[in-house]
Computed example of a mutant assay.
Amino acid sequence: MKGQRGFSIVVATFVLVVLGLLGTYMVRLSANQISTSINALQGARAYQAARAGIEWSIARIANGGNCSDLNTQTAMSFTGLDGFSVRISCSSQTYSEADKTPTIYRINALSQFGSYTDTDYVAREIEVSIVN
């Protein structure tokens, strides 16, 4: 029995090291999951901000506006979009078909949060075409 002296200290140290490494791994994994969740939420908010810009543009065109009205609004700030900016660009082209002359509008909305070099930067872009 004298040859096994101190063996329990070695086993206890090994178990503590393994548990410490496992704990560190779990903390890092949790932090990554939280970061991913926050980025997904910000991406969804950016998409909704861009969609709000598209719908605002469509409403302006439906009420007699045109692309020059939209292009002068380079950055908008909607209520409730804390920190998001929305840039609208529009182009239009008129066609002649029989006795009608429809105008096709191509509207692009780019929503951004933060600046490109920031770690929490997010952007979403939506483009639609409508006939008026």
Score class of each variant (00 low, 15 high):
residue 104 I to H: 09
residue 60 R to T: 12
residue 63 N to H: 07
residue 42 Q to S: 11
residue 35 S to N: 10
residue 85 S to V: 08
residue 14 F to Y: 08
residue 49 A to M: 07
residue 24 T to R: 03
residue 103 T to I: 14
residue 95 Y to E: 14
residue 97 E to S: 11
residue 28 R to S: 12
residue 50 A to Y: 01
residue 89 S to W: 00
residue 12 A to F: 08
residue 17 V to K: 04
residue 60 R to A: 12
residue 53 G to A: 02
residue 64 G to E: 08
residue 121 Y to M: 08
residue 39 N to L: 14
residue 1 M to F: 05
residue 96 S to A: 13
residue 48 Q to D: 03
residue 39 N to W: 03
residue 12 A to M: 12
residue 37 S to I: 02
residue 1 M to P: 02
residue 48 Q to H: 10
residue 10 V to A: 13
residue 63 N to C: 13
residue 16 L to I: 14
residue 3 G to I: 09
residue 33 Q to D: 07
residue 23 G to K: 07
residue 108 N to Y: 03
residue 71 N to A: 05
residue 2 K to N: 10
residue 106 R to S: 13
residue 46 A to R: 01
residue 15 V to A: 12
residue 64 G to F: 08
residue 48 Q to F: 11
residue 77 S to L: 00
residue 92 S to N: 12
residue 19 L to H: 00
residue 108 N to L: 13
residue 115 S to M: 10
residue 18 V to S: 13
residue 57 S to W: 03
residue 8 S to N: 10
residue 131 V to W: 07
residue 6 G to D: 07
residue 40 A to Y: 04
residue 106 R to N: 10
residue 42 Q to T: 08
residue 101 T to Y: 05
residue 28 R to L: 14
residue 102 P to D: 02
residue 15 V to P: 04
residue 80 G to Q: 02
residue 20 G to V: 04
residue 35 S to H: 07
residue 22 L to Q: 04
residue 108 N to D: 06
residue 34 I to N: 02
residue 57 S to D: 05
residue 99 D to L: 15
residue 11 V to N: 02
residue 20 G to S: 15
residue 25 Y to W: 06
residue 39 N to I: 06
residue 54 I to S: 05
residue 47 Y to K: 04
residue 54 I to Y: 06
residue 84 F to T: 03
residue 126 I to F: 03
residue 37 S to C: 07
residue 35 S to M: 11
residue 5 R to K: 11
